[in-house]
Amino acid sequence: MLTRRHFVASVALLAVSGWAGHTFISPAAAQSADQGASAFIQKLGNDAIATFSDKSLSRDQAIQRFRTLLYAGFDVPYIGRWVLGRYWNSANEAQRAEYQKLFEQLIVNTYAERFVEYSGETFKITGVTPAGEADSMVTTQIVRPNGPPVNVSWRVRKGAADYKIIDVVVENVSMGVTQRQEFASVIEQNNGRVDGLIQALRQKVGRTG
């Protein structure tokens, strides 16, 4: 029930509070593609730590850098579309465009704060396994100054040019699945209209600042 420690840990995830530090690669399934995915996560994590350890940045600068890192590391349009799930098909062009814009803002609003507040977390890569047909799951452990470590896995897909993250799994909870189910619930409460979700996103994004 709500009280179980698993649930506790999963919620703790959602406060994914930054990444950092130690290099510790132990390739469980040593394939060359996996190595690439693991190196990609390592570099992205190191960049994030370097960026947010610098406390001389203004808030706006830090958020801008978060956005840069977000696009360097994540396939945001893919995630947005995946999260919308079957409702993507029933949305028209204009709705899709606005949804993708709002989704990106929601991600920035939700996570930028946690990175800007970076307070010495470190991470180590604990393994790489193949996922699905062509992806790699890079598992990491985030070590926090306070509280128990958090297990985070990054689903990485190799594109034409580079690697991109397409899902994040924190203590066995997929961020993509969670958001997909949440968005589906909002749409269902609006009689299956995607506009209902877009309206809710506008409000959410609008009043955060």
Partner: peptide, 24 residues
């Protein structure tokens, strides 16, 4: 954090619970 960032807190908790239990 979760409450602040959710569009539908009920649905978010429902999803978290289901995923956690499946994993456990």
């Amino acid at each position: 954090d979760l409450r602040r960032n959710s569009l539908d807190f009920y649905a978010t908790v429902r999803s978290l619970y289901h995923q956690q239990r499946e994993a456990a």
